[in-house]
């Protein structure tokens, strides 16, 4: 059982390496944002498997928070690329 968990952790580490490769290499800025978005998912997966290793429920908030932060940062980056600013200062 531990072996299967270690195998899946290894697979996820390999995918993180692949994503970092795309993050460094990506020809355009949206490519890099996409890689960051995917990196958020992979970090969530790593945390989830790690909580099983140490049998602790303390990291569930971390999972939730990384999910929220990754979504918000993706949306903010996308808006920034599209319009040149992320937050509307002129409220109407």
């Amino acid at each position: 059982m531990e072996a299967i968990l270690k195998l899946s952790l290894l697979l996820i580490v390999l995918s993180i390496l692949a994503t970092v490769f795309r993050l460094v290499r990506g020809p355009s800025v949206p490519d890099r944002v996409q890689a960051l978005d995917m990196l958020g998912f992979l970090i969530i997966s790593t945390t989830a498997i790690f909580t099983i290793f140490i049998r602790s429920t303390a990291f569930f908030e971390v999972i939730l928070l990384i999910g929220i932060l990754s979504f918000i940062s993706t949306v903010a980056f996308a808006r920034f690329i599209e319009r040149g600013y992320a937050i509307d200062r002129k409220s109407d």
Partner: peptide, 18 residues
Amino acid sequence: VVIILIGAIFSFISAIGL
């Protein structure tokens, strides 16, 4: 644990796709 392994394989496939 097998469900987790399936999830890891899917993540890996999508990283290959990336």
